[in-house]
Design a protein around this nucleic acid. Structure first.
Lengths: 190, 190
DNA sequence: CCACCTTCCGAACGATCGTTAGCCTCTCGA
DNA sequence: TCGAGAGGCTAACGATCGTTCGGAAGGTGG
């Protein structure tokens, strides 16, 4: 992929995240490259192709980050690592993450199906951690692991709305993990 | 507001939630009423007015639900009640809640400012609960209440993506609350 | 019965949408 | 030195965008 083509993808990620897919025109994209809008079509076949590309890049980034999480060892540490990995991707590729979480739904046809499969698989990889944790006894044996995974994924998926580039995402993830593991209850309410 | 006008607002909520604000045309709205698109302008001054109306209705619904939460008594119970209230609104007014959480950002000018103020105030009402809980000792005295509120709000704000009308939102909220309060850690990892 | 108000129609507005076409001008390897 | 391909231009396409307008139904209250 040429340098110019890469530039276009980056601009698309930024603009789709900022103004939404339908709120971004080909004229906007062209202006970001300093070019006439017709010239975009030397690089792409359609605006929809850009959306797919950015959404797909998001899926790859999140999956790659999870790949670095060991699939053995204490579940508690793997949950922490998974949250760290997710938040790091959000902070380092905020535009792409935003498209991955919010704009993907404007995908159509085949691309939409492929994206949804990747997204479901990602969430399942999270769920497995909590199920395994319960089964191994590292998490409470009476844990509702589905709800637990949903809570963790909610924190992960909502992060793009408040997380800013440059944040200490490891510390943030650790705070979430501590909360999820040990709860908030104090002595006075026990 | 006439019955017809109300119908238009409902259609707008449904379509904005389904296809996004910029993905919904005035022709779509007109078709939902079985009318020519020009006829909409007997009822409204602009499409943007509908977005404001739906977003504002969402803000009112969420605030009204929180109003029913007592401002005294055990903080733990008030957190549970607040989560119940929020999830109930999401399930009972899913379209409006979706616009409140996701589509509001296409508001412009004055309306955008007013909405943001309402939204910030809503989140602040949540945050207060956790701060107060820590100060009163009902929650752990070493609690990071900002992160705690963020975690709860993440679960609340993400709910529109998975919650379906007719769910038992009270039970769902209680499961979240139990998790938030007592955590997931099991004996084996302590 | 008439005057009014609400609602809708049909047609059109200028603007903008995503996309296509033909042509020009570089750059670079053969 | 020449040919080719990459990348840009201008211009235009038909479609659709949100919105406006004048007029015509239809019901309601005086």
């Amino acid at each position: 992929m040429s340098a110019r083509r890469t530039e276009l993808t980056r601009a698309a990620a930024r603009l789709f995240a900022e103004k939404g897919y339908h709120g971004t025109s080909t004229a906007d994209l062209a202006e970001a490259l300093g070019v006439q809008k017709g010239s975009l079509y030397s690089h792409i076949e359609s605006k929809a192709e850009l959306l797919w590309e950015v959404a797909h890049e998001g899926a790859e980034a999140f999956h790659a980050a999870l790949d670095a999480v060991p699939d053995e060892g204490p579940v508690v540490e793997r949950i922490r690592a998974a949250l760290r990995a997710h938040l790091r991707v959000v902070a380092e590729q905020l535009d792409v993450a935003t498209v991955f979480v919010r704009e993907w739904r404007y995908l159509e046809g085949e691309h939409r199906q492929r994206f949804l499969a990747e997204r479901r698989r990602y969430e399942e990889r999270f769920r497995v951690l909590f199920r395994e944790g319960r089964e191994l006894g590292e998490l409470r044996t009476d844990l509702d692991d589905g709800t637990a995974a949903l809570l963790a994924l909610s924190a992960a998926n909502w992060a793009y709305t408040w997380l800013r580039p440059g944040s200490d995402t490891d510390a943030l993830a650790d705070r979430f993990t501590a909360l999820l593991l040990d709860g908030m209850r104090g002595y006075a309410s026990r």
